[in-house]
Structures are given as structure tokens and as C-alpha cells.
Design a protein around this nucleic acid. Structure first.
Length: 318
DNA sequence: TCGCCCCCTCTTAC
DNA sequence: AGTAAGAGGGGGC
């Protein structure tokens, strides 16, 4: 099957897919035979990267008024010059030698919220499994590509039925099953629905953060992750035990590992890094991440299929 | 196999 | 009122 690959001129130092898509922001990306793919906004989006260019193509109808290129530029926050930011952060010696191309995504707030409700007391591998279950069981089918089924992330209505909690428990969600179910009901009961979450992009950090805390299974850390990764609060630094360790070990801060201590650490990093403090934090965070490149959702087809299907090199010549 | 620890939040108890 | 401690499912080490 021949894909119509399009080229976007962007350097790896601006976005490094293997790191950005595996550092605990989005949990749905697959990596199959050198191609990154995801079911997003009613299409299967596929990406492939070279040193100075990103190649993209898609399968499925998509959404009216949202081209693949628009989706990519929005999803990856490509209007932000990451290289310039790295230059500013380099004043901090601890940044020297860290991974390049790690940027904050601009995800869908609803998916972001649900994913991070799943993330409490949890690890990336298991979160990925849970989010995939969510999409497979409750998300609308989009297409099958090279033998792999792709679903979109489920709408709140699909997760609001009373039967959902038990189903999620059987899928290994544990106590988070109830949180997801209740939060979905809450969003469905809102007059504005998903627009309410989307609208938090226009609110201040404090207001957005407070609003998110009202949802079930959402504490300060999860609220901060959503603020940073889908609500444009670029200077928000989510502090968990991991970031707490970086702060106390590498930065010699003497904060306690409790909410007050976490808040103090957040303020310290915001002062230090400025407007895009949340982005800076993700670079240090990723550097410490043992889960990076751990083989989640990675598949390789038998060699013979690679030759015959030839989704890569032969179709990529500009 | 058995502990122990987790990218936490909620609840209860001071 | 603000803070502290324990429970909660499953999986990794």
C-alpha cells in the first residue's frame, strides 16, 4: 500500500520523536518498523523522522477544518523555538549534556486528563497498557493499518455509563476505574461538556488548576500535568517524587516530600527557568527516566513484509 | 516467593 | 485550619 508522505522541514534538535513520545506525556504512540503512529482526531497519523525533516501521512477521514499539517503543528507546539529555549537554559550548568529535542506537547485536554488520572501511583508501561485498553474498548474505531487496529480516544459519554467502572476494573485499572467513571460523568453533566476543559486554556494557571482539582482522582500533581501538557501553562512545573529527587539531589534543595515541599520546589524552578519552566523541567525529567526507550508499543514485522509492504524508504524520496 | 517500592489521591484522624 | 497517616490494585525489581 502506497502512502502519500509529506515533508515538514524541522530539525531533530527542535523535536526528537523517540524522546518526546516516550517521556511520559502521551501514552498512545506506537513505533512500528521505523514509523510512529497514533489514532488521533479521526485519522491514523503516521510520522517518520530524519535529521532535518519530519515526514507525515495519514489514513482515515480526519476532521473537517483540521489538516494533518495543522494537527501536527498544534500537537507538537511547533511555534515554540526549542533551540532558543535550550540556549537560555544553558546558563544552568546542569543542562549541559542533556538530551536535545525534548519539547512539551499540546494534547487534547480530555485525553490528557484521563491519562494522568491513570498515572497515579503508576509507571509508564502500565499506564500505556491502560490507555490502550481505554481506546480499544471504548474509543471509536478509525482504521486498520498494516494489520493494526487504531481507535480514537473515547469521548466522555463513552466512559460515563454505570457499567464502565466494573469493566475498567476487569481491565486492571484498580481503584482508578472509579475515578475515570466519575470524572466522565462530571464532564457529561456540564452544559459546556468538553468545551469547558478546552476553555481552561484561556484561564489563568491558578483558575485552571483549581478547576481541575474538582474532578475525581485529580490532585495537585495530575492537575499540574494537565495544565502543562494541554492547557498552555508553559511555566507550570509538576512536582512528583521523581522531580523531588532531582531537586534535592542535583539542586540541593531542602524541601520535604509533601505538598508544601513540592510547591516550594515548583516556585524555585519557576524562578530559575522563567516563562517555559515546565518545558525545562521535562528535559531534566526525561534524562532521569529509566522508562525511556523501553520498548512500549514497539513492533517489528517479519523482514519479508518490510520488503513487500515497503512503507518506508522507497516512498520517502521527495 | 516474598517484600518493597512506585510519575498519587482520597479519606480519615488528629 | 492545616498536616499526617493509611488504604488502594497491580506490576516491577
Amino acid at each position: 500500500m502506497g502512502y502519500d508522505w509529506h515533508k515538514l522541514l524541522i530539525d531533530k534538535s527542535q523535536v526528537a520523536l523517540p524522546h518526546v513520545l516516550r517521556c511520559g506525556q502521551s501514552f498512545r504512540w506506537r513505533f512500528i518498523n521505523g514509523v510512529w503512529s497514533i489514532g488521533l482526531k479521526n485519522r491514523v497519523l503516521m510520522l517518520r523522522q530524519e535529521e532535518k525533516a519530519l515526514y507525515y501521512t495519514s489514513v482515515g477521514p480526519g476532521q473537517p477544518g483540521l489538516s494533518d499539517e495543522q494537527l501536527i503543528k498544534d500537537y507538537f507546539n511547533l511555534h515554540v523555538d526549542l533551540v532558543k529555549l535550550y540556549g537560555e537554559w544553558a546558563k544552568d550548568k546542569r543542562f549541559h549534556g542533556h538530551l536535545a529535542g525534548i519539547r512539551i506537547l499540546r494534547q487534547d485536554p480530555w485525553e490528557n486528563l484521563c491519562s494522568f488520572i491513570c498515572s497515579s501511583n503508576n509507571n509508564i508501561k502500565r499506564i500505556s497498557k491502560m490507555v490502550e485498553s481505554l481506546c480499544r474498548e471504548f474509543g471509536p474505531y478509525i482504521a486498520t493499518v498494516d494489520g493494526h487496529e487504531y481507535h480514537d480516544f473515547p469521548a466522555p459519554e463513552a466512559l460515563a455509563a454505570d457499567s464502565v467502572e466494573e469493566k475498567l476494573r476487569s481491565l486492571g485499572f484498580g481503584y482508578r476505574a472509579k475515578y475515570i467513571n466519575i470524572t466522565a460523568k462530571m464532564v457529561c453533566d456540564m452544559p459546556a461538556g468538553l468545551d469547558y476543559l478546552q476553555g481552561l486554556r484561556d484561564e489563568t494557571y491558578t483558575d485552571a488548576h483549581t478547576a481541575l482539582l474538582a474532578f475525581s482522582g485529580v490532585g495537585p500533581k495530575v492537575a499540574d500535568c494537565v495544565c502543562l501538557m494541554s492547557l498552555d501553562k508553559h511555566n507550570c512545573v509538576p512536582v512528583d517524587t521523581h522531580v523531588w529527587q532531582i531537586a534535592t539531589r542535583d539542586y540541593r534543595l531542602s524541601a520535604k516530600n509533601n505538598p508544601k515541599g513540592h510547591q516550594a520546589i515548583q516556585r524555585y524552578f519557576q524562578d530559575l527557568w522563567g516563562e517555559y519552566a515546565g518545558w525545562a523541567h521535562s528535559v531534566l525529567f526525561a534524562a532521569d527516566l529509566s522508562d525511556l526507550e523501553n520498548g512500549i508499543n514497539v513492533k517489528s514485522e517479519p523482514l519479508i513484509e518490510v520488503k513487500t509492504e515497503s512503507t518506508l524508504e522507497t516512498k520517502l524520496e521527495p
